[in-house]
Computed example of a mutant assay.
Amino acid sequence: MTTNNPLLKITGMLNQFLLNVETFFLSGITIFLVAAIFIEVICRYFLFYSVAWAEEITRYLFIWLTFIGSAYALYYGQHTEIDVLKQAIKKSSFKNKESLLRLVHFLSIVATTIFLIAFADVFYTYMMRIWARTQTSPTMHIPMGLIYLPVFIGVVLSIFHEVCMFIDFFAMKPTSSPGSEATNEVQSTPSEGGK
């Protein structure tokens, strides 16, 4: 979307930068996961020796992959959504289907953002308790706070992506052309449908 609004340009650039960082980070984790699993398989089945650190690092990297990937998927609308309300509106005989769909879209962005903020607040308190302890992981002695950190980072990234979707929502002009529903489907975000 081309615009002269400086807020849209800045948030768009920052959002794209974060998406690029997330892509790079997720790619690196995936490569490292494959390598660690490969080493574990070779050691266990050919050398008859189990590498304890490989199993532990794989488990923790999956956690990082899941929560950072969740934020990435949120922006691109890749999460499962319940779209019964959207489908009912599309099949209804309402004259303002486009306006109702935009309202549902708006409410889903707001509801998802509120949920994420509340979850971030609760999880931050829990994470700080974990950081206050000196507990480490059994094999690699990684502080347990680092193992819980990706949940909070993923939620914060998700909140930022939701704010960008909120800004984009108001920048997006509603259309009334016959193909407008298809256009909005492409532009739709994952927060539609009440996650």
Results as ranks from 00 to 15, higher is better:
Met1Trp: 02
Thr3Ala: 03
Asn4Pro: 04
Asn4Val: 01
Asn5Trp: 07
Asn5Asp: 14
Leu7Trp: 09
Leu8Glu: 14
Lys9Phe: 04
Ile10Trp: 10
Ile10Leu: 14
Thr11Ala: 10
Gly12Ser: 08
Leu14Cys: 12
Asn15Ser: 15
Phe17Asp: 05
Leu18Ala: 12
Asn20Ser: 15
Asn20Glu: 11
Thr23Glu: 12
Phe25Pro: 07
Leu26Gly: 07
Gly28Met: 09
Gly28Pro: 03
Gly28Thr: 03
Ile29Thr: 06
Phe32Trp: 05
Phe32Asp: 06
Phe32Glu: 09
Phe32Asn: 12
Leu33Ile: 13
Leu33Lys: 05
Ala35Glu: 03
Ala35Ile: 13
Ala36Pro: 06
Ala36Tyr: 04
Ile37Cys: 12
Phe38Gln: 05
Val41Trp: 06
Tyr45Leu: 13
Tyr45Gln: 11
Val51Ser: 13
Ala52Asn: 12
Trp53Arg: 04
Trp53His: 02
Ala54Ile: 02
Ala54Thr: 14
Glu56Leu: 01
Ile57Ala: 09
Thr58Met: 01
Thr58Val: 07
Arg59Gly: 05
Arg59Tyr: 06
Phe62Ala: 05
Trp64Gln: 07
Trp64Met: 08
Leu65Ala: 10
Thr66His: 04
Phe67Thr: 03
Ser70Trp: 00
Ser70Ala: 15
Ala71Gly: 13
His79Ala: 02
Glu81Tyr: 00
Ile82Gln: 08
Ile82Ser: 07
Asp83Gln: 04
Asp83Asn: 10
Lys86His: 07
Lys86Trp: 00
Gln87Val: 03
Gln87His: 02
Ala88Asp: 13
Ile89Cys: 06
Lys90His: 04
Lys90Arg: 10
Lys91Tyr: 00
Phe94Ala: 15
Lys95Asp: 15
Lys95Leu: 12
Glu98Ala: 13
Leu101Thr: 10
Leu101Phe: 03
Leu103Thr: 14
Val104Lys: 08
Val104Asn: 12
Thr112Leu: 13
Thr113Ala: 15
Ile114Met: 11
Leu116His: 11
Ile117Glu: 07
Phe119Asp: 07
Phe119Gln: 12
Ala120Arg: 07
Tyr124His: 13
Tyr124Thr: 15
Thr125Trp: 00
Tyr126Glu: 09
Tyr126Gln: 13
Tyr126Val: 07
Met127Pro: 02
Arg129Phe: 05
Arg129Leu: 11
Ile130Thr: 15
Ile130Gln: 06
Thr134Asp: 15
Pro138Met: 02
Met140Ala: 14
Met140Thr: 10
Leu146Cys: 04
Ile147Pro: 10
Leu149Met: 12
Leu149Gln: 01
Pro150Cys: 04
Ile153Arg: 01
Val156Cys: 13
Leu157Pro: 09
Ser158Asp: 09
Met165Tyr: 00
Met165Arg: 14
Phe170Ser: 08
Ala171Gln: 10
Lys173Asn: 09
Pro174Gly: 07
Thr175Gln: 15
Glu181Gly: 09
Val186Ser: 09
Pro190Arg: 10
Gly193Met: 08
Gly194Val: 11
Lys195Leu: 15
